[in-house]
Design a protein around this nucleic acid. Structure first.
Length: 882
DNA sequence: TTGTGATGGTAATGG
DNA sequence: ACCATCACAA
């Protein structure tokens, strides 16, 4: 009797718990209910990976291993069964007195550690856990990146491995400075073996847990290898003296710490009994080792990854970690999540087409129940301006239909590609945000102030001291710095210590006054740190050091960027303030410096602002957008020139393409450009092989009207007749449709190839030069408007299946670049005019200001409110009378 | 020591 | 095309 009650209760308990996770699919639920032992989740793009992670943690904390168990902590009563039945029927929570019966071996939230790839992902995880579990328990889960977790561990144990508690974290710039000093000391010529290569080699060694000693012991392949080993050892010594870790050290040294100190290892294994690692495909040997060291004897290790999305091989990620997981952790349960919830089937099929061309895969095929959606739009642009304009057109159309800017993302292979888009968007007044590239914290003035701050935190840090000792200029030149360096080395003390009694050294007599002054500044800052709040301290640094005075003097002299720099420093102080607000009592100088070292651009990307976002595909990993523009799909750009000669590199590029494609939810726009200015040279690139790999049935392609016009006007003698039907043969012009010879296929006789030849022969060069040079928007071009007008594309263009953006002739004047020669002078608008803007629609002019041969027009738009645009560049049309 | 002009190298992805 | 670095003059 009691036994069957027990059975009934356990079955009900399963039902109850399953209901809690009712929104998951079978595979996802399996992953959630696999609570103990090693678990490998192979999660395809958009398969609800984060959801699974969050739910799995929630299940651990709320129910532990109760699901599937046939055991209860006490005798089951009729009341128990009844209460649980009621809870299931009514969809309410079971009464609290059942908790003991439901929460079997429930895991305490602070026993769970989740490692993610970015701080942003960690933040999202925590946010969702808070929502699911409530504030307290959610917050108690330790979720962070590898690097943050390691810093946390290292802070605690630094002294046991000979580092100061307030160690500094060096960024790439610092590393290069150190390496440069090493080269100088060892008289190594960086022309023979570039510093960057040395750092790279060293970095790979650290990723693979190769110590300087091992590197030296291992016979080098060549002279360069020998040099690398030599500088590695010297570099490491310097960092240790400075009390600094670089990014790779954070992992490497933590591994050493855990490997060599059993007590420390056991401390963490006891503390974190359940480990979850996200983006496992991007972990390095060192990171794998770290995970293994943290994993206790119970082996409660769950990793989530997708071998098809491994895109960080170049920085030491090893796909073997995921491929060998089952072998390294015997008894691993493997679960595949292959249902995609993100994209339309056309987009997903396109992605599958591409990734299928890789050989090194675990192999899985994503599927979806989502609609087919629109076909993937492929646009061939004439040049990068044209590409930018096309994107703006599409976005404009979407906005007219009620879409939001923030639903659009422009993704590219490398940061350099953002420039033309950014500049076009700026001129057209399209709100946008670039993620990545030159980071705020990388600006010279910001780094300088941070260097001052960090030497106050860590007086041993000679590298950063050198950076600012004469910034602003205070008569401490290279000679003096070299003398100080020697003195410090002789006595085994830091440079700052030498400076603190500069008067004791005869060699420093000449520079004594400036040095003592510098020391006074330093002491003032020390005092400021002790007596004032952190943001006041930052302000003091800017002022006491004379940095502010220097910039103000520059600004007075008419230095253009000095004002910007001052503003940046103001922003820096704001950032410190924000940091203080966020961390309250916990705020510390070390903490702040740590944040700026470890927080990346993508972490602070905030999707709530209504802006188009521009970023690299790498940055976009883990994100999704309704509308995605994947630009620069050309050989030599994507895949990059450097990857073309290695099959393994190419496969990584292809995975990157796969990541890019799978970011899109509703519509994907891929573009390539016939001509592109890159690295100061105009290149003519073939469309990317990745485009060719997509089956034609998922694609719809369009060529820039500019390219069509060229062919129909008969430039480049005698080739237009090989294009079927000229402009009217548009849909087939690409050779892409039914005949599937596609992009410049192997026949070599494709339309595109011909065009390259034609242009290289200069057949239309003269007729074309105006447009080309007016690409900057300031050229002398006398070209025809490009989107409408007498050449009649308006009509020819409107084939039924054409992409939305191109489907109707657009009523505003053409691109800022192409159709507004500077010679026409500024456009004149007046307050009160009603104008039409390509992107924002209709609005009323509020104010007009003259600026450098142009006007800044402030407009109140009906739909989007007040915006400022440049009259000469913004796609504005005056509406005569409303 | 500081400021300038020329030069020449460097061009991928990032914590 | 851009930047950083360097040599050199002031």
């Amino acid at each position: 009797m009691a036994a069957s009650l027990q059975q009934e209760f356990c079955a009900l308990r399963d039902t109850y718990i399953e209901k809690q996770f009712g929104r998951l699919n079978d595979m996802q639920r399996q992953a959630v209910f696999t609570t103990d032992g090693p678990l490998l989740i192979l999660a395809g793009a958009g398969s609800g990976k984060t959801t699974v992670l969050v739910n799995r943690i929630a299940n651990l904390i709320r129910f532990g291993s109760a699901h599937g168990s046939s055991w209860t902590p006490r005798e089951v009563t009729e009341d128990d069964v009844k209460a649980l039945k009621t809870a299931i029927m009514t969809g309410t929570d079971a009464p609290a007195w059942l908790d003991g019966m439901l929460r079997q071996n429930a895991v305490r939230s602070w026993n769970v550690m989740a490692i993610t790839f970015t701080n942003k992902a960690a933040g999202e995880l925590k946010e969702r856990l808070r929502n699911m579990l409530g504030g307290e328990e959610g917050d108690e889960v330790f979720a962070s990146t590898f690097h943050s977790a390691c810093v946390r561990i290292l802070r605690r144990w630094a002294e046991s491995i000979g580092y100061p508690r307030s160690f500094t974290i060096y960024d790439t710039d610092d590393s290069q400075r150190v390496m440069k000093a090493v080269y100088k000391e060892l008289s190594i010529d960086d022309k023979f073996f570039p510093i960057k290569s040395a750092i790279n080699q060293m970095s790979r060694w650290k990723d693979q847990l190769v110590s300087p000693e091992e590197a030296l012991r291992t016979p080098a392949r060549d002279t360069k290898g020998a040099i690398a080993a030599k500088v590695y050892a010297a570099y490491e010594k310097k960092l240790r003296e400075a009390g600094a870790f670089d990014f790779d050290d954070l992992i490497y040294q933590t591994v050493q710490l855990l490997a060599e100190h059993e007590d420390v290892r056991e401390f963490y294994q006891n503390k974190y009994r359940y480990l979850l690692v996200d983006e496992y495909q991007d972990t390095s040997v060192a990171q794998f080792r770290l995970v293994s060291l943290l994993t206790g004897p119970e082996k409660n290790i769950c990793v989530v990854g997708d071998d098809d999305q491994s895109i960080y091989r170049f920085r030491g990620a090893t796909i073997e970690n995921i491929l060998n997981f089952e072998r390294i952790f015997p008894g691993t349960k493997t679960i595949r999540l292959e249902q995609n919830y993100r994209s339309t089937s056309n987009i997903l099929n396109a992605a599958n087409c591409v990734i299928q061309h890789n050989t090194e895969r675990k192999g899985k095929t994503l599927w979806t129940r989502n609609d087919e959606g629109d076909k993937v739009q492929v646009y061939t642009a004439e040049n990068e301006q044209d590409e930018a304009m096309h994107i703006a057109d599409v976005i404009g159309e979407h906005l007219k239909e009620g879409g939001h800017l923030a639903d659009h993302a422009v993704l590219y292979r490398m940061n350099a590609q953002s420039a033309p888009i950014e500049s076009y968007f700026t001129r057209a007044g399209i709100p946008h945000k670039i993620v990545g590239g030159q980071r705020f914290n990388d600006r010279k003035e910001v780094k300088d102030i941070h260097s001052y701050m960090s030497i106050v935190a860590n007086a041993r840090d000679d590298v950063r001291l050198r950076r600012i000792i004469n910034e602003p200029a205070r008569k401490i030149g290279n000679t003096t710095v070299d003398v100080i360096t020697d003195l410090a080395a002789q006595q085994g003390i830091s440079m700052l210590e030498v400076i603190s009694h500069a008067d004791a050294y005869a060699k420093l007599s000449r520079a004594m006054m400036p040095l003592l002054k510098f020391w006074q500044i330093y002491e003032k800052l020390q005092e400021s740190l002790e007596t004032r709040t952190l943001d006041e301290f930052a302000q003091d640094v800017i002022e006491v050091t004379g940095y502010k005075a220097m910039l103000e003097a520059d600004a007075a002299k008419g230095h253009e960027d000095a004002a910007d720099r001052l503003q940046n420093l103001g922003q820096l102080v704001n950032n410190v303030k924000n940091y203080c607000d966020q961390h309250g009592e916990e705020a510390s100088l070390e903490g702040y410096l740590e944040d700026i070292a470890l927080i990346s651009d993508i972490d602070s990307y905030n999707e709530s602002a209504d802006q188009v976002v521009l970023m690299t595909i790498h940055s976009a990993k883990g994100l999704e957008f309704p509308y995605v523009f994947l630009i620069g799909m050309e050989e030599g750009v994507f895949p990059s020139e450097m990857s073309k000669y290695s099959e393994a590199d190419l496969e990584e590029e292809r995975r990157l393409a796969y990541v890019g494609i799978t970011r899109a939810k509703r519509e994907l726009y891929i573009s390539n450009s016939v001509s592109r200015m890159l690295y100061g040279r105009t290149q003519r690139n073939e469309p990317s092989r990745f485009l060719r790999e997509i089956e034609p049935e998922y694609i719809e392609e369009t060529r820039s009207p500019a390219l069509e016009r060229r062919s129909s006007m008969g430039w480049g003698s005698g080739y237009s007749d090989t294009v079927p039907g000229g402009a009217s043969g548009y849909s087939g012009a690409f050779g892409w449709g039914r005949n599937s010879s596609r992009f410049g296929g192997r026949t070599g006789g494709s339309y595109l190839n011909r065009e390259y030849n034609a242009s290289e022969r200069g057949g239309f060069a003269s007729g074309y030069a105006g447009r080309g040079s007016s690409a900057s928007g300031l050229g002398s071009g006398s070209s025809a408007p490009r989107t409408s007008g007498s050449s009649g594309f308006g009509v020819g263009y409107g084939r039924p299946a054409a992409p939305k953006a191109a489907s109707k002739p657009v009523s505003f004047p053409g691109s800022p670049a192409a159709s507004r020669p500077a010679s026409t002078g500024p456009k004149h608008y007046e307050v009160g005019d009603i104008v039409e803007h390509k992107v924002f629609g209709r609005g009323k002019v509020l104010a007009v200001k003259a600026a450098a041969g142009d006007q800044i027009v402030e407009i109140n738009f009906e739909k989007v409110g007040v915006k400022k645009t440049m009259a000469n560049f913004a796609p504005l049309t005056k509406i005569t009378e409303e």
